[in-house]
Amino acid sequence: MVNVLRRSALAGLALACGIGIGAAAHAAGEAVEPPAIDWSFNGLFGTFDRAATQRGFHVYKQVCSSCHSMDLIAYRNLAQLGFSEDEVAAIAAEYRITDGPDENGEMFQRPGIPADRFVAPFPNEESARLANNGALPPDLSVMAKARAGGPDYLYAFLTGYVDPPDGTELMPGMSWNTYYPGHQVAMPNLLFPNGVPYTDGTEASVHQQAYDVTNFLMFTAEPSLEERKEMGVKVILFLIVFTALMYAVKRKLWADVH
């Protein structure tokens, strides 16, 4: 599995470089097609790669979540990724939740429980902008469905930080990204080799981290994907049998008419 990951990451890197060179010729503002990646959740029988998605959660938790909220996701949703009930409770308990008012009319702090939604890094949009040079880090809950190219784009974006082409002046606080429409993006490159410690022996390369967190983002955007595809296969099989049967009945009924 790790081999497959590495190979797709390498293929992605090679493609990214190839397209990156081509992209310099593109006028700013034009979107660069992200390379297609063979995700485990693609195809008729696609499922989430549990290990990658769990690692992706750690990447989100340690890197992305310092700026990006995930308002639609609750800690309990992590159970679907294979985290045990105790692990989910422990993760939730790491956060302080403002609750209340209590019987004295006061708001109070309590440890998180699995039913709580992910705690947002900023209390409101204004404070998020203040801390981010005026830019608003978008909520990531459905991000994997909210950009053209979906997960392919997210992976390409996260691995698409390069030096700006010669002669291009970056606006203050901006970074150059091959795949971002317009290329100048307020989010800096935040993935570094071994930036997130992996405990399962996987090498925490930038591509691996980007791959893992994209898996996690696809899960949060489409948590019913596995259930949907599983049901879809059954529905299609049923319909094929049903339709074939109806065709046979139709042939028989019409035989004496022709």
């Binding site: 319909l239 049903f242 339709t243 109806m246 065709y247 009945v249 139709k250 009924l253 019409w254």
Partner: peptide
């Protein structure tokens, strides 16, 4: 029956 087949 023809419509049912088409529906399938």
């Amino acid at each position: 029956i023809k419509d049912t087949f088409g529906l399938g």
